[in-house]
Structures are given as structure tokens and as C-alpha cells.
């Protein structure tokens, strides 16, 4: 009996000890896990970025994510990488309807139809598992990746969760905040709008154009879904495809307008080739329907009925959102 108590005591003590024990050292000599914390910097007038507490940002994680972003190894046949469709020179978008990877750190909904919501880790896990269907044995058997994943995540087995976390860390750093518009609104920058740009600003940020209710804020997107009146009979491949709710027919995610001059063609189906065509649509081509967003309050007039001069002003303003510091930033470029 005495022995039984003794063994029970030992077992409990061992259990507590093991619960508190740190993970074992790597089996591969020369691998170390000592990551350097990474602080994402962005202007004060941007929203508070959402982080994943299970995926703390590190220099190693960001750099690994950047490699993965440009590596065709993600694709089972090696045909494409993320960057194949998300071209830095085009604000990480591309023809025909690829949404740009810009300021994703503030996104809570993803894809035109909102198929994925949450944070960047969620959308990257979708890309790795469902879009690419990545063969992770290629990473586990790779010459360099196992060590890099160990240094970033202290893992000796690479999973899609690790890959998505690395990609998410990189994309949180992919921030556009240095457009001509950003300089104009920064006091002391010495950059002032032209008369045309200023008129366009007034149209954009008042109910004259009423662009800001969906494309407002410093991110130029409300992260929500709207039917903006493209069709009298709204299509079913947007949000309604996910929710199954007929009230969501014709609703698509509001894309950011940052770098909008670089991301033609426009709309979820790429139906407009130029910004001028887009502005023409909002001026006179809006189609009322049962699910059109109430914010399209001039829909019964076909739109906001801009003059030709107002259209030019609005396009001039939209072009101030182009950020060449972003499109040329070497920290976002192909590391290979």
C-alpha cells in the first residue's frame, strides 16, 4: 500500500514536470530557434492592424513567407506561385480579376464572394490547402526549407498551417501608405493637389459622388459586400453563392481603391477596361434591382449624373492613390 502511494506521487510529479517542460531540441544539429521579433510599422492614421496571437511576427517568418510567395513549389506541378497572379508592379493584382494583395493586414473578408473570412492566416491556409493543394512533402524533403521553417516556427514537420502563417507574416508587411494622396493629406509634406484633383476629392468625399461610403477611410474599402448596380438581374456568383441568401444576389466585396490605376480591368468580372469606363458607369449606367445597395441612392436616375468635367476630376483624384514606393519596394520583391 505504501508503495502504491509512493508511485502515485511520483507519477503526478512526473506529469506536472512534463507539462511544464520545454519542447525538445532539434534532431538536426546546426538548427536553432531564436527568432527576432518583427514590428510592423504603419502610419498613425491607419486602423489598428489585427494580428494572430498564435502567429507572432518574426524576421524569420516574414522572410520565409516572402520566399514562399514567389516559389512555384507551392503548386503541385510547379506551374505557378502566388506572385504569378499577384504582380508587384500591378499592386499585387493582375489581369483579369485578381484582387490586389495590398494592406491585407486590415482585411477581415477575402475573395470577391467572401468565401473566406477571418484573418490573413485563414485566407493563406485556403490558398495552400484548397487553391494550390500544395504537396508539403516537397517542402519537408527540400534542401533548405526544413531549416528555415524550424528557425521560424520551431517545427521539424512542415504543415500547411506553418506555410500559411509564414505567408501571412509576409503579407502583413505589404503595406501601401505612400501614395500622392497620402502625401497631400500629410501636413508639412509640401505636396498639394492640383485643382482637378481637389475637385475630384470633393466629389469622392461628399454625397455628390458618394464614393466614400463604400470606398472610404484610409484603406479605401469598407471590407463589406455590396451590389453596386452593375446588372438589372444580379448574378449569383458573389456573396449569395456562399450564403445561399437571395438578398445577397449581386453583392461582391468592395475592393480597395489604393493603386486603382494599376489594377485594370475593373469589377468582379473585369467588364470595364479603364477608370473612365468605371466613372461612366457610376454616372449613368447604374441598374436598379431588388438587392441594389441602399447607398446607391441615385440608382433610379441611372447614377450620379456627373458632367464630363466632374468625371475627369474624379479620375484625376483616383490616380493620386497610386503608390510607386509600394510597387518598387525591394522588401516585397522576388527574393530568388
Amino acid at each position: 500500500m505504501k508503495n502504491l502511494y509512493f508511485y502515485l506521487f511520483c507519477f503526478l510529479s512526473l506529469f506536472i514536470y512534463l507539462s511544464c517542460k520545454k519542447d525538445a531540441v532539434p534532431t538536426n544539429p546546426g538548427w536553432t530557434y531564436d527568432p527576432t521579433p518583427y514590428t510592423v510599422e504603419y502610419p498613425d492614421n491607419f486602423p489598428i492592424m489585427v494580428f494572430d496571437e498564435d502567429n507572432p511576427m518574426t524576421v524569420e517568418g516574414v522572410e520565409l513567407g516572402r520566399m514562399l510567395y514567389y516559389d512555384t513549389l507551392l503548386h503541385p506541378n510547379g506551374d505557378m506561385a502566388c506572385a504569378s497572379c499577384h504582380d508587384q508592379s500591378l499592386s499585387f493584382a493582375s489581369f483579369p480579376t485578381v484582387l490586389p494583395h495590398v494592406n491585407l493586414g486590415w482585411n477581415t473578408t477575402f475573395l470577391w464572394n467572401g468565401k473566406v473570412s477571418g484573418n490573413i492566416e485563414d485566407i493563406m491556409l485556403f490558398e495552400v490547402d484548397d487553391f494550390f493543394k500544395t504537396d508539403l512533402t516537397k517542402f519537408n524533403n527540400h534542401e533548405t526549407y526544413p531549416k528555415l521553417f524550424y528557425e521560424a516556427f520551431e517545427t521539424e514537420e512542415i504543415t500547411s498551417v506553418h506555410a500559411s502563417r509564414a505567408l501571412a507574416q509576409f503579407l502583413r508587411t505589404v503595406i501601401s501608405s505612400d501614395s500622392r494622396y497620402d502625401k497631400i493629406i500629410t501636413s508639412g509634406s509640401g505636396v498639394f493637389p492640383t485643382e482637378e484633383e481637389l475637385n475630384g476629392y470633393d466629389i469622392f468625399f461628399t454625397e455628390r459622388g458618394d464614393c466614400f461610403h463604400c470606398h472610404g477611410g484610409i484603406l479605401f474599402s469598407d471590407n463589406l459586400f455590396h451590389n453596386n448596380g452593375l446588372d438589372a438581374e444580379p448574378s449569383a456568383n458573389g456573396l449569395s453563392e456562399i450564403t445561399g441568401d437571395p438578398l445577397d444576389l449581386g453583392k461582391y466585396k468592395t475592393p480597395t481603391l489604393r493603386n486603382i490605376a494599376l489594377t485594370a480591368p475593373y469589377m468582379h468580372d473585369g467588364r470595364f477596361q479603364t477608370l473612365e469606363e468605371v466613372v461612366d458607369f457610376y454616372s449613368d449606367g447604374v441598374q436598379p434591382s431588388a438587392t441594389i445597395d441602399p447607398l446607391m441612392k441615385q440608382a433610379h436616375n441611372g447614377g450620379i449624373n456627373l458632367t464630363e468635367e466632374e468625371k475627369d476630376d474624379l479620375v484625376a483624384f483616383l490616380k493620386t492613390l497610386t503608390d510607386t514606393t509600394f510597387t518598387n519596394n525591394p522588401a516585397f520583391s522576388n527574393p530568388f
Partner: peptide
């Protein structure tokens, strides 16, 4: 506070 909800 600069949350997305307030910015909207």
C-alpha cells in the same frame, strides 16, 4: 479608436 468599424 482607429478600428475598421469606427473608420467605416
Amino acid at each position: 479608436e482607429n478600428t475598421i468599424e469606427n473608420i467605416n
